[in-house]
């Protein structure tokens, strides 16, 4: 055994590679998170922050109706967006993967996600243009006489959902397409060979095999959607607020960091629960 120890070299070299990234993450991700957790237990009296250990900010969430309502709104909007986006994107991705000739598929896909690259802020603004009272849709509807008065499309939950769905249809088309094309054509051939028609092949073979990919996309949609501030802020109007908007209100208007921190941590807890459920599902699926 002595020889074993003699030759074990203690080497600090490897740490030199990993340390910068670890320190960066520790200083600008872990530390702020701890600071936020501590601040969430502080109190704000008047305009001063007082260091204390109280769960008052968390209790406020359950006591004040508008905080709880914002969380409910966020969950509702996110659920509607996730389901709608998958329902719209799946057939679209399937058409690109199955019906478009192979040499045009890449182009079809690049086109399908091109508006992805409009600036995030500008994308919501563009929908405002489209949905505004005197915007293109209302003018078209008025023009063909379908309605007498412009519809209140903008500044509503519908507008928020449309703005979100627009973004996530593109994202999900990409992920679902990637799933569909990596599916070996032999599965389908085997199913057809064994007597399954196109519909049954799809239902019993293609859909189950792409389900994990759909779930990954759905989870991504959930996480990105529930944490987004811009889309509801630009399109949603003043009737209802979502969690990120409420959090930003605490920071922006009132500089109430303790409440904002508590709300942010509650939002993270919701996302974590969703993640654990998702991870559990994936594990069960693989087993």
């Amino acid at each position: 055994m002595a020889a074993t120890w003699k030759r074990k070299r203690i080497d600090l070299g490897p740490w030199a590679f990993v340390a910068p990234a670890l320190l960066w993450t520790a200083a600008f991700f872990v530390a702020p998170f701890i600071v936020m957790a501590v601040v969430s237990l502080w109190e704000r009296v008047g305009t001063d922050l007082i260091a204390s250990w109280t769960f008052a900010n968390y209790l406020k969430f359950f006591e004040r109706g508008h905080f709880l309502q914002a969380m409910v709104n966020s969950l509702e909007v996110t659920a509607i967006v996730t389901v709608t986006s998958i329902v719209l994107a799946y057939p679209f991705a399937w058409i690109i993967a199955e019906k478009v000739p192979a040499r045009w598929q890449r182009l079809a896909l690049v086109l399908a996600i091109l508006p992805f690259w409009t600036s995030y802020v500008v994308r919501s603004y563009s929908w405002l243009l489209v949905l505004a009272n005197n915007g293109i849709i209302n003018q078209a509807l008025l023009g063909i006489g379908l309605v007498d008065e412009p519809l209140d499309l903008a500044n509503s939950r519908t507008a928020t959902v449309i703005g979100f769905v627009h973004f996530f249809v593109m994202l999900l088309t990409l992920t679902i397409y990637a799933n569909l094309v990596q599916l070996s054509p032999n599965y389908r051939k085997a199913a057809a060979d064994l007597g399954a028609g196109p519909l049954r092949t799809f239902w019993h073979v293609v859909l189950p095999l792409t389900l994990p990919g759909i779930m990954v996309g759905a989870f991504l949609t959930f996480v990105l959607c529930i944490g987004d501030y811009i889309t509801p802020q630009v399109l949603g109007g003043n009737n209802e607020l979502l969690m990120p908007q409420v959090i930003m209100l605490q920071i922006g208007r009132r500089a109430d960091f303790p409440t904002a921190s508590a709300l942010a941590i509650l939002l993270m807890i919701v996302v974590t629960i969703a993640y654990l459920g998702f991870a559990r599902w994936i594990r069960l699926e693989r087993a």
């Binding site: 990234a21 520790a26 702020p32 600071v35 944490g227 960091f257």
Partner: peptide
């Protein structure tokens, strides 16, 4: 653990990362 730590920010929304930095930089 190191890998998990390095990739952890991917799972947290930008709003929360930004807020944490704001409060910390403030402090």
């Amino acid at each position: 653990l190191q890998r998990a730590l390095l990739t952890a920010p991917l799972t947290v929304s930008y709003l929360i990362i930004g807020m944490g930095l704001l409060i910390t930089f403030n402090a």
